[in-house]
Design a protein around this nucleic acid. Sequence first.
DNA 1: TGATTCACG
DNA 2: GACGTACGTGAATCAG
Length: 933
Amino acid sequence: MAFGKGHHLSLIDGSAFIFRAFHALPPLTRKSDGLPVGAVSGFVNMLWKLVEENKGPDAPTHVAVVFDKGSHTFRNDLYDQYKANRDEMPEDLRPQIPLTREATRAFNIACLEQEGFEADDIIATLACRAREAGGRVTIISSDKDLMQLVGDGVEMFDAMKNVRIGREGVEAKFGVGPERVVDVQALAGDSVDNIPGAPGIGVKTAALLINEYGDLETLLERAEEIKQPKRRQTLIENADQIRLSKRLVTLDSDMELDYGLDSLEVQEPVAEDLLGFLTEMEFRTITRRVAEALGAEVPVIEAPEAEQGEDAGDEAEEVPFDASAYEIIRDADALAGWIAEARARGWVAVDTETTGLNEMTADLVGVSLSVEPGEAAYLPLTHRAATSDDLFGSDELAEGQLALDEALDLLKPLLADPSVMKIGQNMKYDAKIFARYGVAVTPIDDTMLMSYAMHAGLHGHGMDQLSERYLGHHPIEIKTLLGTGKGQITFDRVPIDEAAKYAAEDADVTLRLWKAFKPRLHRARVTTVYETLERPLVPVLAEMEMAGIKVDKGTLSRMSNAFAQKMAALEDEIQELAGEKFNVGSPAQVGDILFEKMGLPGGKKGKTGKYSTPADVLEDLATEHDLPARVLDWRQLQKLKSTYTDALQDHINPDTGRVHTSYSIAGANTGRLASTDPNLQNIPVRTEEGRRIREAFVATDGHRLVSLDYSQIELRILAHIAGIDALKQAFAEGQDIHAATASEMFGVPLDQMTPDVRRQAKAINFGVIYGISGWGLARNLRIPRDEAQGFIDRYFERFPGIRAYMDDTVARAKETGYVETLFGRRINTPEINAKGPTAGFAKRAAINAPIQGTAADIIRRAMIRMPDAIAKLPATMLLQVHDELLFEVEEGAVDDLIGAARAVMEEASLPAVKLDVPLVVDAGQGANWAEAH
DNA sequence: TGATTCACG
DNA sequence: GACGTACGTGAATCAG
């Protein structure tokens, strides 16, 4: 029967898929010989999924996989720069290209390609013919270049994200319908394919213009009418280039093909061929699944003798993701059922959905649970009812939700049950939300922290990223539910059905990650790090963040006003000096004034072609001129006002009157914490004016703030790790370490030390921790480079262990791909074998990481022990600033707290590591942070 | 959104 | 031999 009405053609964009699969999926190699097969695996799984899913009435009747062939197409004849900036194909992908053709044939699916054409042209030609014949078409691709084909029975399907793209999807992407997509592309151009387009015009502007003028030709003819002078000029000047761009992006939908649509009819795979191929590739899971589905015997794939490496051999039972399998919990019985499932296993993955990202203010909207891969449920609690007036929505609760109190009463015993592990991704967030509803969550496992312990330095540890990388699955993005920018809605406004798919998937993903990571943690030998430095820190930080610190709004507000006045005066003075009005806050304009108008020396241009005006450059100029000096003053005030006195006021929680930061545990590669919203780890202290901001951080009535900080902890660690006897001895004797260094280097007796010599030694000491270079030290000390290099040479001569430590560390990193702290924390160094300037960066980072990381581990250990150590004191731990802990304590207990906390901090490395140097902790106390520090 | 600048350890 | 570099962070602002 000829292809026609009622038929459904599925066209798979094979080339695009394998490129995407290669980059999105974890690298996988064939065990017997190490052949890279990750992209092939992703491709095979996608094909099988289509075969499996397409058995319903809507199934394709015809199917083909289409590939690019050759690198020279008719587009290169039109424009020799077409796709000219494409990178070389990655080495590991090259051998997989022919394998994907083989896979297609093994599936008994037509495999199409044609010299001189791109896959997109073949797809366009076939899609148009099928449409003309009255059939339907699904293009399996997310390539925007194919979106021009959508409409009239043609739609696209993104197989990796599992989303359909119809007319609305195209409009969302391009701002115009499919018919006008090429017009927009012609204007906007494309840096990936090297389509020139119109300079300075992006998709947004292009859509605006096309919608206003109807189509590209009309627009170009009537370009004179455009109001914006820059746009008008661009379009007039580049008309030819734009028309060329249009020809480049327009697909050839009328190719000559020596086969017809009928030849693409779906055929059952031949079990022998398909299983033969899969066995050859050594894909265990899919081979078994295919064999079972085809009713064939499961072929045996020899297990490789010894499993090597930490990622080997834990190929979990793969259960496909299936949103339709997720349950919505609407009554107490159903919830009780899931709780029983969790208890039966001893674990459950938990994820909360809320109205915002700030745990202190966001409200609980729903909870999702998962107990096995693919088995997950969503418990909606406070979703709002939809109304006809969709501008504001309703404040009424949607129907079919269990009452919040009732649900929490049922969940509470489970979440606190010591025999059930609660698994989460960034559990600190969920635990804090639950805590506000009086529900404790313990014990916990956290997939984000598991990843951090194993993969610090390799990639981020967000759920989407981990899912893509380790599960090969792209989870639904939250923005598809909430939108972005101004029109963004909160999660309680998302319809329950839609919310459930997203939320349950998150719990499902978390559970799968947990199952994948558990065994790997052990193999990577970071279980101890995870168990002693990551997991126990979660409740400690949650407590600190919820405690917050009292900030006096009046003090900040007064300072803001004072800064504003001074800035206004400075601004007048600066413009007076410059002889013109300009934006003092614009580095580019400051640069023009200094280096063009005034003709001062030292102007360097950055990537953007603008003068760069960092503080050190301005400082040099300030010795001779007033203007740069005033600009520096202005900038300091601007910084203090905008980042601190203004912004901090907005962070004061109206309920508590306190500022609640959030610490990210897995943010910094070295093991340090990072503080956000607001960042309380960079409150000014170095200048007198800035330090006064700390006066606004106060203790409540009858209390004091107490600050304890490690003295020179990184240098002490360096002395220990590198085994520098002279440094160790100086620390043991309690000497001024920078003065001692200077004395050792320059032969000046301690009692004759000058501040300047000491300052230079201090800079060198810091430089060593950062992976010193002559250039860097010269810049820091403002001395000639050869002089700086002389200092370094002498330093290495006097402390030969330092050189050895640096060389060993870099060598180890090159060999293993990571460095470690004294406590076994692993920091991966993927760029250590890079070439060019990157190599320098990577080396210095590798030298610094064990030092900075060990210090971070030590204060983590202290923090974890602190709650027990101060349990009997009327004191609360509030903040951590890398080597400092800040407490709030009742007036009468200050000395007791200092004694207890100092002991914990000074002994924090024990018993795991006995340092060759003493750790010394300095303490201070006062009514505010300025006094306490 | 990326580049600049600057606050901290 | 030139190149371009101190380590680790987060936030505000400008400008396209």
